[in-house]
Structure formats: structure tokens, C-alpha cells
């Protein structure tokens, strides 16, 4: 459980201290990539809780989503339409969905545990 948090922390530290800077023009792509990663992460968490987690799906999903979103944003820039909003919308909706499902699953787990405790006592 703590390993992903540690990973996040290590990533933050590496990003902070390597002093790599992204030009402001590419900030859009980066934010979409972050959103894609978040989406995949929560999707993975949901799948894990629903016990249908697949490592290949998860890892391929994150890179595929990032590339797709960045490609869409790039196409948008070339066409002069803010196509990155499409990715933003899709990821945003899915993020909320996944988090809602995760919340429900947690609540369900908590209720089941409480019921068990009642039965024990």
C-alpha cells in the first residue's frame, strides 16, 4: 500500500532536483499527460478493488492514453481547435466516475466489516 506513495514521492523528488524545465508552450501537453496518468491510476485502483486488475492493461493503458491525449492536443494546435479539451473532458469524466466507484466500494467494504463486527459481538 505504501509503495505507490513512496513512488510518488520519489518521482516528485527526482522531478524537483533534476531541474528539467519544460517550455511554457508545452505546459498543455504536460498537464494532459498528468491527467491521463491520474485517470489510469484511479482506473487501476478500481480494477484492483473489483478484482479484475490486469498488469498489461494497466501499463499499456497509461502510455497509450498519454500518447493519445498528447496527439490529440497536438492535432488541435495544428487545426486551431482546442482539441485538448476533448481529452480533458474524457479524462475528467472518467476520473470522477472511477473515484465515485472506488468510494462506493470502500463504503461497501466498511459496511461489511461493521456488520461482521456486529455479528461477532
Amino acid at each position: 500500500m505504501w509503495l505507490p506513495v513512496l513512488g510518488l514521492f520519489i518521482g516528485l523528488v527526482i522531478g524537483w532536483f533534476t531541474n528539467v524545465s519544460i517550455p511554457e508552450a508545452y505546459a498543455h501537453y504536460l498537464s494532459i499527460a498528468i491527467l491521463a496518468a491520474l485517470d489510469t491510476l484511479f482506473g487501476g485502483m478500481r480494477a484492483h478493488l473489483q478484482k479484475n486488475y490486469d498488469n498489461v492493461v494497466f501499463v499499456s493503458g497509461i502510455f497509450f492514453n498519454i500518447i493519445l491525449a498528447a496527439g490529440l492536443a497536438f492535432l488541435g494546435v495544428k487545426l486551431g481547435v482546442d482539441l485538448y479539451l476533448v481529452a480533458l473532458f474524457a479524462f475528467g469524466v472518467r476520473l470522477f466516475n472511477n473515484i465515485a466507484i472506488i468510494r462506493r466500494l470502500f463504503i461497501q467494504m466498511w459496511r461489511e466489516r461493521a456488520e461482521k463486527n456486529v455479528h461477532k459481538s
Binding site: P4, V5, G7, L8, F9, I10, G11, L12, V13, I14, G15, W16, N19, V20, S21, I22, A27, L30, S31, A33, I34, A37, L38, T40, L41, G44, F58, V59, I62
Partner: peptide, 14 residues
């Protein structure tokens, strides 16, 4: 993936 995410977030701050 979380490490990657952290890295990107740090870059975004940068």
C-alpha cells in the same frame, strides 16, 4: 506509474 506521475507533477511546477 505513481513515480512517473510525481515526476510530471514536479515538472509542471517547474
Amino acid at each position: 506509474v505513481t513515480a512517473f506521475l510525481g515526476f510530471m507533477v514536479a515538472l509542471q511546477f517547474g
